[in-house]
Design a binder for these strands. Structure first.
Lengths: 164, 164
DNA sequence: TTCGGGTAGTTGTGCTAGCAACTATATCAG
DNA sequence: CTGATATAGTTGCTAGCACAACTACCCGAA
């Protein structure tokens, strides 16, 4: 292996670059796996469904159009259709027609879905804090958040952010 | 929605926490998707296969035990078995018996695999730099790498790091 | 030597996600 | 109003992954 630290344009990644890049991949993989397992164990709720509940609960009228929801939870439309189907079958969501646009439909939070979210939220937030946020100082969090803001547009061009 | 910024132990996430956490999720999702599409378009190589090639090429003898490889590429053992199968069918890897341990087997880099990696590496590294690394100063990279180091053990307990 | 427990890897199975094709509706041009 | 194009959502199909069960083997103890 003929490797040596170059500046930053050609050749292999420097150790620093490697650390910053691979760290992201590893931390993400582990966090998501741990959080999903945690949520599933405590409330029988996959992380993907929790995400949907959070998004819908935060939307006006506690309902959201399918396409917005798909963007919000980083899923394809077909993937979302089926995810919402599963959740509707479990009573966490219901589907409602859209009055303004007959093509569209809403995913609406049911009381059961709301209750489930209320149960799960504190579990999940506690886990996020414990596994991730608690490791950082306030300054570091600020730094991180700023970095994400900066990189996001660089990646691709489809997104918006949503609240908790 | 009765939400207000709390300190950091209870209640909903502060905007700062939210930004740091969701940013990670979004940036990761977009980067991986973009990098995979890029690599696939340029060299017909999925990111998962590229990862395997990098790991194996960096290992002594250009071969690796299946279980180490599985850890290295963040995949389950069964997932890795099938991924290596596919790559072997494409001629990128070959499977070799392990002399010391008859249970084990090696995934060995073939000349074709090496060639493919050589083609793809610069494409991929350029993309990683363009989409991610280039957005940061050296100091920020140092900060990031340090943060990952710190969080990693907090998540779960299985990993080691590997070089490029 | 032989038995028991642990480890490496593969295979059966099921789930989740994406892509492409399709339907139905909206919207805009003329 | 009519036809062309775009958008929302669903469905058919397939790929990739994880879990659990299984086989084969290693290693330590008696």
């Amino acid at each position: 292996m003929a490797t040596a630290a170059r500046t930053a344009q050609d050749g292999p990644l420097t150790d620093l670059e490697l650390g910053a890049w691979r760290g992201l991949l590893r931390v993400h993989a582990r966090l998501v796996k741990a959080l999903d397992a945690n949520l599933e164990a405590a409330h029988g709720l996959p992380l993907s469904q929790y995400d949907v509940l959070v998004q819908v609960a935060g939307a006006p009228g506690e309902r959201m159009r399918m396409c917005e929801l798909a963007d919000g939870v980083l899923l394809s439309r077909s993937g979302l259709t089926r995810l919402v189907d599963r959740m509707a079958k479990d009573g966490l969501l219901s589907r409602c027609a859209c009055e303004d646009d007959a093509r569209g439909s809403f995913a609406c939070l049911t009381p059961a879905g709301k209750a489930r979210l209320d149960e799960a939220r504190s579990t999940h937030l506690a886990a996020v804090r414990e596994l991730f946020l608690s490791e950082f100082t306030e300054d570091e969090l600020t730094c991180l958040a700023g970095l994400w803001e900066r990189v996001l547009p660089s990646c691709a061009g489809l997104d918006v952010c949503a609240g908790d």
